[in-house]
Structures are given as C-alpha cells and as structure tokens.
C-alpha cells in the first residue's frame, strides 16, 4: 500500500486533536502566573501548593487504596468470569451472565452509580471506603473479563490438554500452564482496572460517604470553581504516572516477547 498524503494528514490532525489539550494542560502546570492565559515564566510553585494541600493529598491516598484493592478484586473476578465465558461452554444462565459482563461497559455511569447506592441503602450498609471499592470492583471486573477473554480465545488449548495428558490435574494445570501464559493479559487487565478506578467520578460520587472523598471528587469540586494551576499540577502528575505505567508495561511485554523469540531461536539452533 502506498502511503498517501491524505492519510498522513488525517493522522496528524487527529493526533494533534487528541494530544494538544493534554500537552497544554501539562505546560500550564509549570506556569508561574495564576492566570491561565498569561505565561509568567517557568515555575514549580503549583506543585508545592498542591503538595501542601492536605485535602488533596488525603483524597489521593484514599483513591490509591481504592484503586489497588478494587483492581485486584476486579482482576480476580474478571479472570474467573473470562474463564467461565470461554471455557465452560454452555451452563445455565450463560446468556444472562454474558449480558451482565457486557452491559456495564456501556451503561451510563449515573445509572450504575445510583442503583448501587440504592442497594447499599437497602442493605443498610454505611457508605464510605468499602462501598466505593465494591462499586469499582463491579464495573472494572467487566473490563478485565473482556481483556482476558480475548487472550483466552487465542490460547492454544492443546497446551492444557498436553498437561492433562501428562497427568496434571485441572486445577494445577490452570496454575502451572494457563495462568503463566495469560499473565500479560491479566496484568494489563489489572492496570486498566486501576486506571478506571483512579478516573471515576460519577459512580464514586454516588457510592461514597463521609471521610471517603476520592481524588476525582475533590478535583471536580475545585474544577467547578474554575481552572487553577494547582489542578493542572495534580493532573500532570496523574498523567505522568499513568503514562509511565503504560510505557513500562509495554516495554516489559516487548522485552519478554524478544526474550521468548531469542530463546526459541537458540533452541532451534541447538536442536539442528
């Protein structure tokens, strides 16, 4: 296929559209001036201000804990769900089950949030840290299930069958053969779950309670009052963290891939 100038232009414009706002936000977090439109020189002042904002720091800490716990729970549940969908053929209520996996992906957050809140109220649970965590677990597990499912669909079943044939019982086969091979997808699912939890405003607003204000809720309440360089600073840090995480993950999977290819080559060369 000949690279066309039209295609190159389209890509350039679309990526500019996707990245320009983020770049602008990052640049202005280093602005010495309080006014967004005036460049007052380079400064790390807003990072200091942000750092000494106790409310923001508390919210960040809560968000991180909610993220880690809900992502971990969501990954376990999502992986189980993916296994159930891909491996267990037909079972009673399979239609409903796959519906429950796909629906939360597109369900408007206001509906999910409100309905979960009403459940917690009906159950008489005090709202706070754990209700947010459970809410996040519920919607992130569906994303994990999709990610892991797509890996399982391309998984070579004969590897498991070989293990079973060699006398390894099914549960052990899962931990010795299947899990190590789908691990990259499981880890990717965890990262996705973590970043979705980190990102969520609407569901957290509905399900949170006193003393469990997450970072997005905090940011949202300040954003409503206008653009401030302090928010730019915390946003920049969040973007940097996520970007670093994604890049590190993709480098490490690429490394693993390279290592695997090299090992295979070596094996072939030794065999011949």
């Amino acid at each position: 296929m000949k690279p066309s100038r039209f295609d190159a232009t389209v890509l350039a414009l679309c990526f500019a559209f996707l990245y320009a706002p983020i770049v602008i936000l990052i640049v202005y977090s280093f602005n010495a001036s309080r006014l967004v439109t005036v460049w007052g020189g380079f400064s790390l002042n807003w990072y200091k201000v942000m750092w000494s904002n106790q409310g923001l720091m508390d919210a960040a800490w809560i968000t991180a804990r909610v993220g880690v716990i809900s992502a971990t729970l969501g990954t376990v549940l999502g992986t189980l769900a993916a296994l159930a969908l891909v491996r267990f053929g037909r079972f009673p209520g399979r239609m409903l089950f796959s519906g429950m996996i796909y629906a939360p992906l597109v369900m408007p957050e206001v509906i999910t949030g409100l309905s979960l809140l009403l459940l917690f109220v009906a159950l008489g649970v005090d709202r706070g840290f754990w209700t947010v965590t459970i809410a996040h677990t519920t919607f992130t597990m569906c994303y994990v299930a999709i990610v892991v499912q797509s890996r399982l669909l391309t998984f070579d079943r004969s590897l498991e069958e070989a293990a079973l044939d060699l006398g390894c019982p099914p549960v052990k086969t899962f931990f010795r053969i299947t899990l190590p091979l789908i691990l990259p997808a499981v880890l990717a699912g965890w990262m996705l779950a973590f970043s979705l939890s980190l990102d969520d405003l609407v569901i957290a607003s509905f399900t949170t309670g006193p003393g469990a204000t997450t970072l997005p809720i905090k940011i949202y309440s300040q954003v409503r009052l206008g653009v401030t360089p302090e928010i730019n600073a915390i946003c920049t840090i969040l973007i940097a963290l996520v970007t670093l995480g994604v890049i590190a993950a993709s480098i490490s999977t690429k490394r693993a891939e390279l290592r695997r290819i090299r090992d295979e080559h070596l094996a072939v060369r030794n065999a011949t």
């Binding site: 996707l18 990245y19 706002p21 983020i22 602008i24 936000l25 202005y28 967004v36 439109t37 996705l192 970043s195 980190l198 990102d199 405003l201 997005p216 940011i219 949202y220 954003v223 206008g226 653009v227 928010i231 946003c235 969040l238 973007i239 996520v242 970007t243 994604v246």
Partner: peptide, 25 residues
Amino acid sequence: VILPFWTSFLIRVYAWIGILKPDGL
C-alpha cells in the same frame, strides 16, 4: 490512540475548559 484513554476522563474534559473559555487559549 489508547494512551489518552488511560489518562483521566475528568482531566481531559477539564483541559478543554482552559482552551474554550472566552479568555482562553
């Protein structure tokens, strides 16, 4: 294409306020 999806939705919407405001960029 995926990378912006990983960064916060709220932050990305917020970024547009600074651009679109009457005295914005």
